[in-house]
Design a protein around this nucleic acid. Sequence first.
DNA 1: TAAGCAAATGCACTATGAGTCACGTTTTGT
DNA 2: ACAAAACGTGACTCATAGTGCATTTGCTTA
Lengths: 76, 76
Amino acid sequence: MDIKLKIAQRIKELREQRGLTQEALAYKSDVDRTYMNHVEKGKRNISIINLEKIIVNGLEVSLLEFFNVKVFENGK
Amino acid sequence: MDIKLKIAQRIKELREQRGLTQEALAYKSDVDRTYMNHVEKGKRNISIINLEKIIVNGLEVSLLEFFNVKVFENGK
DNA sequence: TAAGCAAATGCACTATGAGTCACGTTTTGT
DNA sequence: ACAAAACGTGACTCATAGTGCATTTGCTTA
């Protein structure tokens, strides 16, 4: 599975857990609202700095916790 | 600490564990040798696709395992 | 019907990462 | 000391990441 889609899926999962809209998450993460939407649809090859902003500032989890799910356990 | 430097540090650590040169790792990861060098010096805001190539194809660990160290445990 | 919100899409634009090069410096082996 | 291998750097082009606005679609409630 494409890494972009895995990331997308995980962001959406955590966002919804927190009851945030895409816009609210975008605001917390300091990225554009439409950009947030693109990422969550798996359309963006996001850079590590923006990814960290979304994970740490927006979703308020550590990188470790973000990747600590089945889809990231195996290569390829 | 800058996320780029954390990534850099972790790549170097795993690369040396495996007795690989930057060039050998670059080759396995299908990126340029100098690009590999830039990443390992924390000079590149690497995208998730290239990061995955280096971690999964080059270093042969999962994303989870890559981030499963102290420096990635906390936000900020 | 309509109003209101969230999600999604399109377009035009700017900023920056990807990828490479030539060259310089440091380390390693003999 | 010397050569060869490994590492480091700055600058460059080109593709695309990332921004900002406008519009649309879908869902919900009145």
